[in-house]
Design a protein around this nucleic acid. Structure first.
Length: 792
DNA sequence: GGATTACAGGCAAAA
DNA sequence: CCTGTAATCC
């Protein structure tokens, strides 16, 4: 079953020395610092192929962990292209996907029902809201979002309620809610994302035979994007890594952009120390971008202090300069971009134009996409927006899934409440409250409590529950496709949206759900959720009984489809498997997939992607860097890394743009251009704002400020700090424009509040306001015509 | 009591 | 701009 080792494996051809060293590392722990565009995925997959080819490990002994489903799929695709290997035996997937697989196989030990359902972020929030209402928690003092943040944060740190320190009264209350939330989830047979991780970790930690079994099994553990791992994920890896395993961590500290969701860059240093890592390899050769782009990235990131140290280099020439554009408004910025794109796409005779899908527009926050979308739409340019609501997160899809989940698990109160009165069937808030009271009193689920209800409300509720129960009966033994079609039909969802004038899209999506299910069933890898297989020291599957090898006799044989239970071999129903899939892979944003369209996305979601041409828009103080991150040093460094990620997405052309004015939260804001401009190498940049740029027609004032603008335009290439002050804000009433002379980031002194940092500037003249962070008094908005501020 | 519409308040990034 | 609640009608 092992291919003979080739004399000179073609796998190693065309690898540079560092890459080759990484691929052929000895079987020990190692860290690879992989810069952007340095062929990281290639190294990872080639490493696995190399290990397999040399017979050092069998597929069953390999675990490769990623953060996104996309990365996992990419890895499997590339791997199968390299070697005729059955990827099904390997554990390749996201942290959450693998934890799910593990918990399904050992659900009894994990104290979960076999068909436990997974709450996504939305579901989790509504579960918390419901709980807080039930226990009369003041939602002014404890906003549900904040509570959700707290609970998720605790789990990311591996903390159960009893392990969290109650520093103050507020925290004590939050811990109490956390405790209640856990009980509620357990009662209802659901787990959230964090719980998937935490419970797998605890099972590994507390159950010696299980832990030792998996430690024996996984000879090679490879982790992608290691800089994004949180405390719990790191602890989980430590549990899995046994005496004979080799952990290969691949990461880039400069691309750590997920601190807000618990990522700890420090895990890289901890890994080196705690695993006694002897092999560290830096991949600094970049195969993606021209040097103007790379120099910009290198120079920018050099302004960060806490770095492991790494500098990207390329053999490609300088390429085009990085073009910088200053627009008068967000509207004008979008318009300029559309014009520029037209040029890029156009065939110039000697050189063919760029494909539209090779052009990406990146922005810091999702809200910025609207203006750009409008401009593209009006110009008739096809585009595709990532982010926002993904397929499985759309309301109509979630409704349909809620019905399906109730078939699988009637205790799922979150799903029950979502659809009990959708489509409307005469069950209002009052009836639901009564039902919740009854359920609480008898300690039962809402579903089971319905039988105690009487009167008209009881009749309506009874009819609903009966419908669910009948559907459950009817769908026994049916195919997934039939089940979903039946549910769509009998739930009344289709009918309801048919009556809605704007329901056509939703019906289309519901039909797409049937397709999604169909392709889930037929797709290769449907059964890839195989569970633990007993293995020998090299990770080869054992042919003898596992018990005779001293392994846990309860562990199942290899290759079973559909994640059979480790004990009984009982498999998950296709419906339950599909529901899991829906929760763990929120689905590509399938709008116009495959079409040659311009790509719009946040910088976060651009990570890992690359394009010929990249536009980074909204390069303004308060937006990028974002105002919520500007006040503290750590936050600012993360913003800088984010910018680093954005820049390194570009292969050939990079555009940076900022706008003097922007409509944000319904009002015009005057933002200064981003401080990041000053951290880029002048030689690599080219200022392309037209000299006599007038103000857009939508502004209601004439371009009478040409003199000023002209002066600004002359700063092309250089970024003279003093001049920027004259350039923005370009307010109609010019005499009052920049009278205060403040800049965000500036230190100022206030008679009452003391020293503080200017965060944001807004408005002009007598209305000018500044948001200032005073360490002693917090963040305040001050009217500049009133407040006495002196620069420090 | 429930359904529908009107309006106020919040608003970063995401598996 | 989207969500959650208040006001209104049935």
């Amino acid at each position: 079953m092992f291919p003979e080792v080739a004399a000179e494996p073609p796998l190693l051809q065309n690898l540079n020395p560092e890459q080759r060293a990484a691929v052929t590392l000895p079987n020990e722990h190692a860290l690879i610092l992989a810069g952007a565009g340095s062929g990281k995925t290639r190294v990872l997959t080639t490493r696995i192929a190399w290990l397999l080819q040399n017979g050092q490990v069998s597929p069953g002994g390999v675990m490769a962990v990623t953060f996104t489903n996309k990365a996992a799929k990419e890895m499997m695709t590339r791997l199968t292209a390299m070697l005729p290997v059955n990827v099904r035996g390997m554990w390749i997937g996201t942290f959450h996907g693998l934890c799910n697989r593990f918990l399904r196989a050992h659900y009894k030990l994990a104290n979960l029902p076999q068909s436990f359902q997974i709450l996504d972020t939305q579901d989790q929030l509504s579960a918390i809201k419901r709980l807080m209402k039930q226990f009369n928690v003041d939602d002014e003092r404890f906003p549900a979002k904040q509570t959700q943040w707290f609970i998720a944060g605790c789990k990311e740190d591996g903390l159960r309620p009893n392990m969290v320190e109650a520093r103050d009264e507020e925290t004590r209350k939050k811990i109490e809610i956390y405790q209640l939330y856990e009980e509620q989830c357990q009662r209802e047979g659901v787990v959230d994302f964090g719980e998937l991780m935490l419970r797998s970790f605890e099972l590994l930690r507390d159950n010696d035979p299980i832990r030792e079994h998996y430690q024996r099994r996984f000879r090679h553990i490879l982790i992608d994007e290691f800089q994004d791992t949180n405390k719990l994920q790191y602890a989980w890896i430590k549990q899995l890594a046994g005496p004979g395993s080799s952990v290969l961590a691949v990461g880039d500290d400069d691309q750590s952009i997920y601190a807000f969701r618990g990522a700890r860059v420090g895990n890289m240093a901890d890994f080196v120390r705690e695993f006694n890592v002897q092999h560290q390899i830096k991949l600094e050769q970049n195969y993606r971008s021209y040097s103007n782009i790379l120099d910009s990235a290198n120079e920018l990131i050099s302004h960060n202090s806490k770095r492991l140290g790494k500098n990207l280099r390329t053999d490609q020439g300088p390429g085009e300069p990085v073009r910088v554009y200053e627009a008068t408004s967000d509207f004008a910025e979008a318009q300029w971009m559309v014009d520029e794109m037209r040029q890029l796409v156009r065939d110039h005779g000697t050189e063919p134009g760029f494909a539209r899908k090779e052009i990406a527009v990146l922005y810091r926050s999702n809200a910025q996409s609207r203006v750009i979308e409008t401009a593209l739409f009006n110009a008739g340019v096809p585009y595709r927006v990532y982010g926002g609501l993904r397929f499985f997160e759309r309301a109509e899809i979630k409704h349909a899934l809620a019905y399906l989940r109730l078939l699988e698990n009637p205790r799922d109160d979150t799903s029950f409440l979502r659809v009990v009165n959708f489509p409307p069937r005469g069950i209002g808030a009052r009836s639901i409250e009564q039902l919740q009271d009854a359920a609480r009193a008898m300690g039962a689920s809402l579903h089971d409590a319905v039988s105690t209800m009487s009167g008209k409300a009881g009749a309506n509720l009874g009819a609903f529950v009966a419908k669910i129960d009948v559907l459950r009966e009817q769908t026994q033994g049916q195919t997934l496709r039939e089940i979903i079609e039946l549910v769509l039909d009998h739930s009344g969802l289709i009918e309801h949206y048919k009556a809605d004038r704007e329901g056509a899209d939703r019906i289309e999506n519901l039909e797409e759900l049937v397709n999604a299910a169909e392709s889930f069933v037929t797709q290769e890898g449907f059964g890839r959720d195989a569970v633990a297989l007993p293995v020998d020291e090299l990770g080869r599957p054992l042919t003898q009984s596992p018990a005779s090898q001293g392994l846990d006799p309860n562990l199942p044989p290899a290759g079973e489809p559909l994640a059979p239970d480790a004990d009984t071999g009982e498999t998950l129903s296709p419906l339950a498997a599909f529901l899991t899939h829906a929760a763990l892979e929120s689905g590509d944003n399938q709008a116009q997939a495959g079409q040659d369209a311009v790509q719009l996305m946040t910088v976060h979601s651009a990570k890992g992607l690359e394009f010929d041409c990249v536009f980074i828009t909204g390069m303004e103080e308060g937006l990028f860097p974002h105002e919520n991150s500007m006040s503290d040093y750590e936050g600012l460094e993360e913003e800088r890394r984010l910018m680093y990620v954005a820049i390194t997405r570009a292969r050939k052309r990079l555009y940076l743009s900022h706008s003097q004015t922007r409509l944000l939260h319904g009002q015009t804001r005057y933002n200064l251009k981003s401080r990041f401009f000053e951290e880029l190498p002048e030689a690599a940049l080219k200022w392309i704002t037209p000299k006599h740029q007038g103000f857009g027609s939508g502004f209601g004032f004439a371009p009478n400020s040409v003199a000023k603008n002209d002066r600004y335009t002359r700063t092309s290439g250089g970024f003279n700090q003093d001049l920027t002050r004259f350039a923005s804000p370009p307010v109609p009433a010019q005499k009052t424009a920049p009278a205060h002379g403040l800049r965000s980031g500036m230190q100022v002194f206030h008679n009452k509040f003391g020293e503080g940092t200017v965060l944001t500037l807004e408005g002009s003249g007598d209305d000018a306001r500044a948001q200032i962070n005073f360490p002693r008094h917090g963040v305040k908005w001050l009217a500049l015509s009133v407040a006495k501020l002196t620069p420090v």
